[in-house]
Amino acid sequence: MITAERKPMDEIMESIDGCGRILLVGCNECVTVCAAGGRKEVALLASALQMASMKKGRALDVREMTLERQCDPEYVEELAPHIGQVDAVLSMACGCGVQEIARRFKTTRVFPALNTTFMGASEGPGIWAERCQGCGDCLLGLTGGICPIARCAKRLMNGPCGGSGNGKCEISDDVDCAWHLIWERMKELGIEDRYEDVISAKDWRTGRGGGPRRIVREDLK
């Protein structure tokens, strides 16, 4: 999923300063699962914003809406009847959702309430960790299902650096060394001999190196 975290309240409040009516829009997908921008978080932020402005003796009208998906125009359209009644939209979706709203409603300001962080997985209640950087040419099949691009601090492709120690990465004892994980996994799979197969230099054009990417499926158009 795409993970995100709420921005500091100061930053959020500064962005909507001067607005009397805002539409606070959550998303039912990834940001709901990572407890950053679902219906619950929308209600909590709405209440916090109300209180913060009441504290200043000002009225703020916060309308709450949570879309099925903020990155799909079909759902973003549901905001159309409300857009004219507000000064700005505050989005609690990932950056894709914020941009979809900006694309559809050309004359309405839209601010992000979240910092979109990474594509990751849940390691347990309240813990999410980075797993994939969308390189566009997945090599998990060569590395025992552990991504050295997203999980190695140096994105090394052929074994660990000299900083790997006791299974941890040199950047922090809280971070597993990706190449240690890959080695352990290969041992478990009984394919240690494949560890020394050289992975050729990666062509980063399939990733961000090739500029903004699009997927076009003629059969679905």
């Binding site: 001067g18 607005c19 009397g20 009516r21 109300q50 209180m51 402005s53 009441m54 504290k55 200043k56 003796g57 000002r58 009225a59 703020l60 009208d61 009644q85 507000v86 000064d87």
Partner: peptide, 16 residues
């Protein structure tokens, strides 16, 4: 509670 300042609230801006 400082929130109670809201009892004397003024609108802070007009919706466009």
């Amino acid at each position: 509670s400082p929130v109670k300042a809201g009892d004397r609230m003024e609108p802070c801006a007009k919706a466009s």
